[in-house]
């Protein structure tokens, strides 16, 4: 009998304690972020899909199609094509396809790249209407990006502004994406 009464009292007390905890939380400020209205900063090492990097010296992609990334990829999602252009010392990339439908964002390609010619983009709003939207031509993407940054100097060389524009887009994708 005494045990039963004790259990009832302690049980009831435990319920009161629980309710005290939740009411305490009730009056604390909210912790969620109202996503489309406010966004969080992307982590510095954020692993998005990859993108090609421009060479500041030439204004061309750093990539010279060594295909190390293609070989490192566990899911076969990268296809690189390169050719030796006339007068150039090294090969240069002519097409860089990323099949993002297969990519698992492991980052092996970036690690495999010895020259820092690819890096993670900071795109995260990756919604599309069809599967084809995710078979990306990174070479074209880079050109478009460069065009958007400074349309009059597409085939110009060594434009510091262009590099800066690409870097800016890289750094602050959050804001540009949402406006």
């Amino acid at each position: 009998m005494r045990n039963a009464v004790k259990e009832v009292v302690s049980g009831f007390y435990s319920l009161i304690v629980g309710m005290r905890v939740t009411i305490g939380q009730f009056f604390k400020p909210i912790v969620t972020v109202q996503y489309p209205h406010e966004t969080l900063k992307i982590a510095p090492r954020f692993r998005g899909h990859i993108e090609l990097v421009l060479d500041p010296a030439t204004g061309k992609p750093k990539c010279f199609a060594c295909k190390l990334c293609e070989r490192a990829c566990p899911s076969d999602c990268i296809t690189v094509e390169g050719a030796k252009l006339e007068g150039a010392k090294k090969r240069s990339v002519t097409a860089y396809h990323l099949d993002f439908t297969k990519c698992s964002l492991c980052g092996s390609c970036v690690e495999a790249c010895r020259d820092g010619a690819i890096r993670f983009s900071r795109d995260y709003n990756l919604a599309g209407w069809s599967k084809e939207d995710f078979i990306m031509d990174l070479f074209k993407r880079l050109e478009l990006e460069a065009q958007a940054a400074s349309p009059e100097k597409v085939d110009g060389r060594a434009v510091p502004g262009l590099i800066a524009a690409q870097d800016a887009a890289h750094q602050d994708k959050t804001k540009t994406d949402l406006k």
């Binding site: 982590a43 510095p44 090492r45 954020f46 692993r47 964002l105 980052g107 690690e111």
Partner: peptide, 20 residues
């Protein structure tokens, strides 16, 4: 996420050490 760049499928360890 700060050190690995991912929030769920970290893939942070490497054979012989760490990613970074």
């Amino acid at each position: 996420e700060r050190i690995t760049g991912a929030r769920l499928t970290y893939c942070y360890y490497r054979i012989g050490g760490l990613y970074n």
